[in-house]
């Protein structure tokens, strides 16, 4: 106990040295290219994480002077951040609603749909609920994990259920039967993936793109036929307050180009025909 203060002091000094090291090493790590290097802040929906990271790598190879920094979050949160003057150059939303909100508030330039996404039903690989079709989701006692209605995916899932209820094959009571099996309303899509992947829920509604390479081996996927599905549209736009508007526009052009679209397709997005 007597040596406690000394040990504490050593620990504190150690932490400060580490912090100083970290602080000094960061700027030293980036070489200064001949042309002025710039950083683009791209605010993108969480579901774009893997694909946009790949796009950034490809883009940086072509434009070594442009470094892309991502801020991934729910589109509704990104919109709020931009509205509160966060330093963003590009906004890529997972739904039109939040882009419209940003555009109505005069925060962004004209947006373009750059990619689409569809919903699927995922099951744990061992399928504890013994589900083989969408109809089985209405079986009594099945545990279904869904997003809350505030989350776009949650809104779309309910639309899918309504669409299925209107079809004679499923019957009018289908949606309510499925909804009565819901055990949890998650705040984001990844939380649904997590609970289904761990086998806690028997089924969940997520975007096709959420079945990433990392989790694909732990999940089974049931497709929702396109006529009943909700196709989510992803708009992208330059943020008006951007100080690198032309570079931001160049990045968006790359996302829309065949090269960018090929990368997005690799991550199971539905690409737009450019």
């Amino acid at each position: 106990m007597k040596h406690f203060p000394r040990i504490f002091l050593i620990a504190v000094v150690g932490c400060m040295l580490l912090a100083a090291y970290g602080a000094s090493s960061t700027p030293g790590g980036t070489p200064t290219p001949a042309t002025t290097s710039i950083t683009l802040n791209v605010f993108a929906a969480t579901s774009l994480t893997e694909s946009f990271n790949a796009i950034a790598t490809a883009y940086h190879q072509m434009h070594p002077n442009v470094t892309i920094k991502f801020n991934y979050n729910g589109s509704q949160i990104l919109e709020q951040q931009i509205a509160n003057s966060a330093p963003a150059d590009v906004f890529a939303s997972a739904d039109s609603a939040n882009m419209t909100k940003a555009s109505d508030a005069g925060l962004v330039n004209t947006s373009r749909i750059f990619v689409k996404n569809r919903l699927v039903v995922i099951l744990p690989i061992n399928n504890p609920g013994n589900i083989t079709s969408l109809k089985d989701l209405a079986k009594k006692g099945i545990k279904i994990d869904l997003e809350a209605t505030a989350v776009p995916a949650g809104k779309y899932s309910r639309q899918v259920l309504d669409n299925l209820s209107k079809s004679p094959g499923y019957g009018a009571s289908y949606a309510s039967a499925v909804l009565s099996n819901v055990v949890s309303l998650e705040d984001n899509v990844k939380a649904v993936v997590q609970k289904v992947q761990l086998g806690e829920a028997d089924a969940g509604f997520v975007y096709r793109t959420d079945v990433t390479a990392a989790v694909a081996s732990k999940l089974k996927v049931i497709d929702i036929p396109d006529p009943y599905n909700v196709i989510a549209q992803y708009p992208i736009a330059v943020v008006k307050s951007s100080t690198h508007a032309s570079e931001a526009q160049a990045f968006i052009s790359f996302v829309l180009s065949p090269a960018g679209q090929t990368i997005l397709a690799k991550y199971h997005f539905i690409t737009t025909s450019v």
Partner: peptide, 17 residues
Amino acid sequence: GNFPGTTETTPIAVYIA
């Protein structure tokens, strides 16, 4: 998880809202 009445506590309700 989060379900009204069984698991939705006030902080979760705040977070979702």
